[in-house]
Computed example of a mutant assay.
Amino acid sequence: MDFKKYKTFQVVADTLNLTRAAARLGYSQPTISLQLQSLEQELGVTLLGRSGKKTFLTPAGKLVKHYVDQTFALMEEMEAELRKLEHPHGLLTVAAPEFYCTHYLSLILHSYIAENPEVKLQLFSCDSNDAMKKVAANEADLAIIAGPCKSPQMETVPLGREDLVLVTTRELLERHELSDLLETYPFITYKSGSNIQRLVNECLNDYGFAPDKYIECVSDETIKRTVLYNTGTALLGAALVEEELRKGALAEIHRFPRKIETNMVILKKRIAEQNIRSFAEIVQRIWKEWD
């Protein structure tokens, strides 16, 4: 199918004037006439007729014009969609624990939208395990998680590392001997099977602390708030409790040499997608500035 001949026919059919069609297409009139004759021979119909000095479309010409217009409109739509792929656009969904959403991603989202106004962002607040599940199920395009990701389907991008700190409130620490505090009050921790539970257990084992009483929570923010109500002790990332330690609302019992990792995870098969790649780049850039 020679699209050049069909385009020539479309312009001639729009103008019904060979001189104007030749000027628009940049062809000579004889060239246009040859292309039209070739197309009529190919289709086996007469497309144009003349009445005096006027050119008109035959019934076959009107039918061909209708489909030619549709064809070129679809091609233009296709080209426009292909051009969009060169720049981020559409919906981008990010999943992350509540702490990352409130303390980090709010600034990142603002910066990303400023650079990519055609992208609509959606943010899911959930624990790290659920965030990884959403990425695996294509319910989220990428995730920021605490701890490692062992899935062979995922590309893991390290963002940062921070201390783990065993904390309680200043009030409880002043009212009790440390041994009594650890024995009497519950240890507030992540729900069983959470992404960093193994690291928490390793730290407690290093410290020689084997709590008998547990309270399990779904997020690190919930753990911190529960501790702040004088409920017990918890092991949390230093960034999460930095302000409360500085103000004296929380007290540091022990800081561990083991580090908690922050990672960005993306399905390997989707890492080249424009939206994902552009967002991953800005996350890495801003996170590096924070470090």
Rank of each mutant, 00 (worst) to 15 (best):
T71N: 11
M75K: 14
E76F: 07
A80T: 13
A80P: 10
E81N: 12
E81A: 13
E86A: 09
H89A: 10
H89K: 07
H89E: 08
V94F: 00
A95F: 00
A95S: 09
P97T: 02
E98Y: 07
F99P: 00
Y100M: 15
T102R: 15
Y104S: 09
Y104R: 15
Y104T: 10
L105C: 05
S106G: 10
L107I: 14
I108P: 14
Y112N: 11
Y112R: 09
A114P: 03
A114C: 05
A114M: 06
K120Q: 14
L121R: 10
Q122I: 11
L123D: 04
F124R: 13
C126Y: 04
D127R: 00
S128G: 01
N129R: 14
D130M: 14
D130V: 15
A131I: 00
A131K: 02
M132K: 07
M132W: 00
M132P: 02
K133Q: 14
K134L: 15
E139P: 03
I144H: 01
I145E: 02
I145V: 15
I145C: 04
A146G: 08
A146L: 04
Q153W: 09
Q153A: 14
Q153L: 15
E155Y: 07
T156S: 13
L159D: 03
G160W: 06
E162L: 10
L164H: 05
V165F: 02
V165E: 06
L166W: 02
L166A: 01
V167E: 08
T168I: 04
R170D: 07
R170V: 06
R170F: 11
R170W: 06
E171I: 03
E174K: 06
E177P: 02
D180L: 01
T184Y: 03
T184E: 07
Y185R: 04
P186I: 04
F187V: 00
T189P: 02
S194N: 15
S194W: 05
I196P: 01
R198H: 09
N201W: 09
E202Q: 11
E202K: 13
C203I: 07
C203D: 05
